[in-house]
Amino acid sequence: MVTAAASAPVRRALVALVALALLYGVVSEIGSRVLPRRIWMATHYIEDVELTPRYASLAEEAVFLVRAGILQASVLVSSGRVLAGVLLGAAVGLPLGLAMGRAAGLESLLGPWVAFFRFTPAFALLPLYVLWFGFGEGPRVGLIATAVAIVTLHGAFEGARRIPRVYLDAAASLGAGRVLVLRRLVLPAALPSLVSSVRIATALAWVTIVVAELIKPAMPSLGYLLALAGAYPRVPTIVVAIATTGVLVLVSDVAVLVAYRWATRWMRRRVG
């Protein structure tokens, strides 16, 4: 069942990747012919740079990064932070959003807070988080968790609130109590909205982590790899790091999408 649900999103993601890679190939071929190889950077000229490195340079760089173990370690560390942030943020946002959607009192109590933080970019909290949590994992994971919590809270709130009245009436006249209504009605009815908010939050988490890792960059991480490569500058490293991040975003998006299709399988009419 899950494999059937997975095949379409996976196929679409693969097609997108191949198309992007081909497009980049064309751009880099043109770029390496027309763009200057000598650029002015701040105080001095840098000689012999490839602004749009070709496949060959990228492959060489990728092989080096993998042999040295840098890429794998960076992927592992950054993915770990994203996962921790998403889990932590969703663990706060989803239950709170559901509760707000079901209890009018809670909504009027917390509503203004949510509205306030909803449009405050998570990065605005960065200096504060560094002061609160120091330069360790705290501010990075905390920043992702905050961004995720706000997005998922909203998704859960909307999902829980939009459940049609008639289902609640039907459940009441069948004698269902609060717990049963929450488990068997509110949760499944809100699930599509919940999962799509997690999907947006996961993409947002990747945006957040790369920036969050630029504060006091530390090996190994994708953010550090980017910062370091930018300082040299080593364009192939930058491109490999960007491509790796892109693939990771795509992979996590497909994972959430598969979960979404599973959660909404009741909406589709099976054929035959």
């Binding site: 049609p164 008639v166 289902y167 009436d169 039907a170 068997r184 499944p188 009741w266």
Partner: peptide, 10 residues
């Protein structure tokens, strides 16, 4: 009910 009240996710 007059409306459709069957739970569609069940």
């Amino acid at each position: 009910f007059q409306e459709e009240a069957i739970f569609p996710w069940m």
